[in-house]
Design a protein around this nucleic acid. Structure first.
Length: 554
RNA sequence: GCGCCAGUAGCUCAGGUGGAUAGAGCAACGGCCUUCUAAGCCGUAGGUCAGGGGUUCGAAUCCCCUCUGGCGCGCCA
C-alpha cells in the first residue's frame, strides 16, 4: 500500500530540490505512517517536519512546496492536504482501492507472501528440552513461537530448517537413568526408592512399565551401572517420542533433530575445544579449564571443562553452534527461555573466538508463562502434579486457542495465562473472534453458491461497485497484510500478525452487521462476495502463517 | 553489588526508525436478533503512559537518576 506513494513523494521532493524550492541535498528516509484517525487520510508523511531544521523554514511552507511538486499522473490520490504542525495527509481514490482488491484476488493464496528473504537459508532452533519428561506450558510458548517464526520466514522467501537440539548427555540424563531404574525395579516387584534429586513424576512409572513390556525384566540381572545406562537410553527415546507427539498436537513438526550425545561421540566437542585452545582463548585454573569470554565483552570467563574432566554444557553448546555455522546457514536463530539471556553474550563470544561472525546468530528470548488459576498463582515445582503439561493445555483449550493465546504477546514480555479462564471462557478467547469471521464468510459463500453465484462469477466481479466506507476500509486493511507479514518476519515478532488478524476480523464483523451481502443486485452481490472471499483468504493465510487453523463452520 | 527485561484504563496487553485527540480485548453499565452464524454489532464509563530531571518545534517512545517487579551472575542444563 505504501510503495507507490513513496515513489510519488520522493519524486515530488526531488523536483522541489531541482526547482530550488528546497535547499536540502539529502532527503531523510521517507516513511509513511497510517494515521490513527480516519480524518487524517490513509497515509501521512512527516517529511516536511524532518526537513524544517535544515531548511530553516516553517514545516507547513515546506509541505506546500512538496505538494506543489506532486505529480499524481496515475490518479492514485483523491486528496492531499497539509494538516497540523506540517503533516502531509494523503487520501487514496476509490479506484486505487479497487485495484488493490483486484491485485489481492489475482495473487490467490500467495497474497502476503514475498521474496524478500531471497532464498537465504535460515535455521531456527526451538524447544530443545532435554528428554527427561513431558513438555509443560513453558515449553509450549517456545514451541509455538519458534514454529510461527519459521512459517513467517518461509512466507517471506527464506529457506527454513526447524531444528530440535536434544540435550541427551550430562547429569540430567544420568539422573533419568537412575530414576527410571528405580521405577523399573519397583514395577518388577523389587521395591526401590527414587534416588536423591531424581525425577518423581508418575510418567516414569508408565515409562518403566513400557520398558518392561518390550524388554522384559532382564535389566534386573545386569550390573546396575550398565542397567541404568541402558534404561536411560530407553527412557530418553520414549520420552523424545512423547515430546514429538506433544508438539505435534500443536501442529508443529521439526525438520531435524540433533543429538548432543552424538556430537560428543563424534568428537566435535573435543576438536572445538582444541581449536579454542590453539587460538589462545582457554586457560587452566582451579582445576578446571576456562574460556576467556571476557575478551569479547562477557563479564566473566566461563568454564568449558569441569574439574572432574568432563565437558560443561557450554562446551557442548559451542560445538553445536559451530556445527550450525558449518552447515552453511545465512542466519541462525535460537529461541531460548529468557532465563538464559546471560548465555547470549558468551555464545556470541565463543563464535567470534572461533573466527565466525557473531551477527549470524540471533537469539529470540521467550519470557515465562505465568500460570494462574482463578487469579491465584500456580506453583510450577519439580513434582509432576504441580506441572501443567503441554498436552493437558491442548486438551483443555484446544490447539488453536493455545497457539493464538501464546502468540498474542511480544515474546520477550511475560505472559499471564489463567487456566480456569482459558477453560471456562474459551469462547471469549480472541482466536474465536478471528476464526468466526472466516466461518461466517464460509456460510455466506455456501448460500451464494446455492443461489447460483459460483467462485468464477465472483472472480469476475467488478470491484467498482464497492463504494461503502466500510468496504473501502476493509480493502485498505487487506492492502496492509503484505507489509504486516514482512514486518512480522523481519522483526521476528509473530504477535504483529496476530493483532492484524484481530483488526481485520473486527473490520469484517462491523461490515457484516451493517451491510447485507446477499441480495437482488447480482453485480453488487458478486462484488461484495469478491471482497468477502478475499477477507476470508487473508484470515486463512494469516492464521496458517501462525500455525492456526481456519474452520469452515463454528 | 553488577547485568538483562519490564512498569500504559479495574485486569491482560498493543502502541516499526520521536509526531496530530494514547488504543484493543476482558470486566462494568445501557441498547440491537421475523432477513446472509448474536462466538456478533452499537453506545457509555474508565488514564499523572511508575516518579523526577534532560534533549527539541514535538516524548509513552531517546538519554540520566530514583522506585517497584521478574530473571541471570565460574565448573546445573
Amino acid at each position: 500500500m505504501k510503495k507507490p506513494l513513496e515513489r510519488l513523494l520522493r519524486d515530488a521532493c526531488e523536483r522541489a530540490i531541482q526547482g530550488g524550492e528546497l535547499v536540502t541535498t539529502t532527503l531523510p528516509p521517507l516513511f509513511l505512517s497510517v494515521p490513527k484517525g480516519a480524518d487524517h487520510g490513509d497515509l501521512a508523511s512527516n517529511v516536511a517536519m524532518m526537513l524544517a531544521r535544515g531548511e530553516k523554514k516553517k514545516p507547513r511552507d515546506i509541505a506546500e512546496a512538496i505538494v506543489r511538486n506532486l505529480r499524481d499522473e496515475a490518479g492514485l490520490l483523491d486528496q492531499v492536504e497539509i494538516a497540523g504542525p506540517g503533516f502531509i495527509n494523503f487520501r487514496f481514490a476509490p479506484s486505487y482501492w479497487w485495484q488493490c482488491l483486484r491485485d489481492c484476488e489475482a495473487a490467490g493464496d500467495g497474497y502476503g507472501r514475498s521474496t524478500i528473504g531471497e532464498g537465504r537459508r535460515v535455521q531456527i532452533e526451538f524447544v530443545s528440552a532435554n528428554p527427561t519428561g513431558p513438555l509443560h506450558v513453558g515449553h509450549a510458548r517456545g514451541a509455538v513461537t519458534g514454529n510461527a517464526l519459521a512459517l513467517l520466514l518461509r512466507a517471506t522467501g527464506h529457506e527454513v530448517t526447524r531444528e530440535y537440539y536434544i540435550n541427551d548427555a550430562g547429569n540430567q540424563m544420568e539422573m533419568l537413568g537412575a530414576s527410571t531404574y528405580a521405577r523399573y525395579a519397583t514395577h518388577c516387584g523389587q521395591e526401590t526408592p527414587l534416588p536423591e534429586g531424581g525425577y518423581p513424576g508418575d510418567y516414569l512409572i508408565d515409562v518403566a512399565a513400557s520398558i518392561e513390556a518390550s524388554e522384559g525384566r532382564r535389566y534386573l540381572d545386569v550390573e546396575p551401572g550398565e542397567a541404568r545406562a541402558a534404561l536411560r537410553d530407553h527412557a530418553g527415546a520414549l520420552l523424545l517420542d512423547q515430546i514429538r507427539h506433544d508438539v505435534a498436537t500443536l501442529n508443529i513438526q521439526f525438520d531435524e533433530f540433533v543429538s548432543e550425545k552424538k556430537l560428543r561421540a563424534d568428537g566435535l566437542v573435543a576438536t572445538t575445544l582444541e581449536d579454542l585452545v590453539t587460538a589462545g582463548f582457554v586457560y587452566d585454573a582451579e582445576g578446571a579449564r576456562w574460556f576467556r569470554s571476557t575478551e569479547f565483552g562477557d563479564d566473566k570467563d566461563r568454564p568449558v571443562v569441569k574439574s572432574g574432566g568432563e565437558f560443561t554444557y557450554f562446551a557442548a553448546d559451542i560445538a553445536y553452534h559451530r556445527q550450525k555455522y558449518a552447515r552453511g546457514f545465512h542466519r541462525i536463530i535460537d529461541v531460548w527461555g529468557a532465563d538464559h539471556h546471560g548465555h547470549v553474550p558468551r555464545m556470541k563470544a565463543a563464535m567470534q573466538a572461533l573466527g565466525l561472525d557473531p551477527a549470524v546468530l540471533e537469539v529470540v528470548l521467550v519470557q515465562v508463562v505465568h500460570l494462574t488459576r482463578n487469579g491465584e498463582p500456580v506453583r510450577m515445582g519439580k513434582r509432576a502434579g504441580e506441572f501443567v503439561m503441554l498436552r493437558d493445555l491442548v486438551e483443555d483449550v484446544g490447539a488453536d486457542a493455545a497457539t493464538f493465546f501464546l502468540l498474542m504477546r511480544k515474546s520477550d514480555a511475560q505472559l499471564d495465562f489463567d487456566l480456569e479462564l482459558a477453560k471456562r471462557q474459551s469462547s471469549d478467547n480472541p482466536v474465536f473472534y478471528v476464526q468466526y469471521a472466516h466461518a461466517r464468510i464460509a456460510s455466506v459463500l455456501r448460500q451464494a453458491a446455492e443461489g447460483g453465484i459460483d467462485r468464477a462469477a465472483v472472480a469476475g466481479a467488478d470491484p467498482a461497485r464497492l463504494t461503502e466506507p466500510e468496504e473501502l476500509a476493509l480493502i485498505r486493511r487487506l492492502a496492509q497484510f503484505p507489509e504486516t507479514v514482512e514486518a512480522s518476519a523481519v522483526e521476528l515478532e509473530p504477535h504483529r500478525t496476530v493483532f492484524f488478524l484481530m483488526e481485520l476480523a473486527g473490520d469484517f464483523h462491523r461490515y457484516y452487521t451493517r451491510t447485507r451481502i446477499l441480495g437482488d443486485d447480482r453485480e453488487l452481490v458478486a462484488a461484495r462476495l469478491l471482497l468477502a472471499v478475499n477477507v476470508q483468504k487473508v484470515v486463512r493465510v494469516g492464521l496458517d502463517m501462525l500455525g492456526i487453523g481456519a474452520p469452515e463452520t463454528m
